[in-house]
Amino acid sequence: MYIEVKNVSREYTQKGTTFKALDKVNLNIARGEFICLLGPSGCGKTTLLNSLAGFEQVTEGSIKIDGAEVKEPSIKNVTIFQNYGLLPWRTVQKNVELGLESKGMAKQEIQDIADKYIDIVGLTAFKKHHPYQLSGGMQQRVAIARALAVDPDIIFMDEPFGALDALTRMKMQDEISAICKNQQKTIIFVTHDIDESVFLADRIVIMTPNPGKIKTIVKVDLCGTRDRTSTDFLKVRDWVFAEFEMKEKDQIDYFI
């Protein structure tokens, strides 16, 4: 498997009490998959993401990406944060160039690559703007362009659309799903929004808190562009709701 999470536990000790953020988590992810980590706050989804991205070390077990143990963040696996993480003193263009600067490329080449990805996220008209001059959705698109520009294998997203309003959020979901199809990246996406996960994911990893563990993994067999109001979509959505015990399982109708 491309990403292998084996028996991973993560404990925090705070003022003498230990808190188990992750408890014996096992997960395998194939190259090119879109995985959503779904669950309420405190279920360890962000801890799992940070461990995968190399920002945190696990206390037990191992995480391997492409056969190599994850020890520190790598430019091959880029993380996109909820608060976008744009550098406010840099223009859109300069923000997108950030990751390319440490690659030892010629200035012109850096600019060309940045231009290409700014174009992909549709912000060419705004490339001389500073982040504070952009809306939340536009800022997140800059962060996406910046991540794509370094041509990573994996993109980690930590509730990237959490701060956006409902309509912008859906628009961003459409965009990210289109971008991902074209770019063929492996994506690990943390969210607490059930609809979002059903819309985006190939598989939804449902997590529960105290201690944080994987409850179940739901495979989303919806091909092509997903329609948020289709019966198939609603069926998967109902299924996920049932997993959170917010809906009785026997209430779900099964049509085949």
Partner: peptide, 27 residues
């Protein structure tokens, strides 16, 4: 802390972390 995470993620090393990230962020 997000800025530092980004610097690490994008392979930015010292002294560039100080000049590219910390100095402007603290300005």
């Amino acid at each position: 802390q997000t800025y530092l995470k980004i610097a690490k993620n994008f392979g930015i090393k010292q002294p560039q972390i100080l000049t590219k990230i910390i100095l402007p962020a603290t300005f």
